[in-house]
């Protein structure tokens, strides 16, 4: 079994008020290291066996049409054994 991981982030130019709010909360707890915070999403898709090249193409397509909105987001697909 493999897990296909799709990580989705807002494009850098898109305002991320949730990330900003998290970034503002960190120093209140004494964590003063963060210059900025951006918040994203992670999808874990389990499949039987290792993904075939064709499945990887389909996952790319699914990421671009449903999991991410390419107008405002970018995504990265990786495979965990």
């Amino acid at each position: 079994m493999a897990i296909i991981v799709v990580e989705v982030m807002l494009k850098p130019e898109i305002l991320d008020p949730q990330g900003v709010a998290v970034g503002a909360a960190l120093p209140r707890l004494g964590f003063t290291f963060a210059k900025s915070v951006r918040q994203g999403k992670r999808f874990e898709i389990r499949i039987d066996g290792q993904p075939t090249p064709q499945q990887m193409q389909e996952i790319e397509k699914a990421a671009a049409t449903l999991l991410a909105n390419p107008v405002i987001e970018t995504y990265v697909v990786t495979v965990q054994a």
């Binding site: 807002l10 305002l15 008020p17 949730q18 909105n69 107008v71 405002i72």
Partner: peptide
């Protein structure tokens, strides 16, 4: 409509959340 690409752009979280 934006998600369907019938209109451009996207609606995101209000600036002050």
């Amino acid at each position: 409509l934006c998600e369907a690409h019938l209109l451009p752009g996207a609606l995101t979280r209000n600036k002050d959340l």
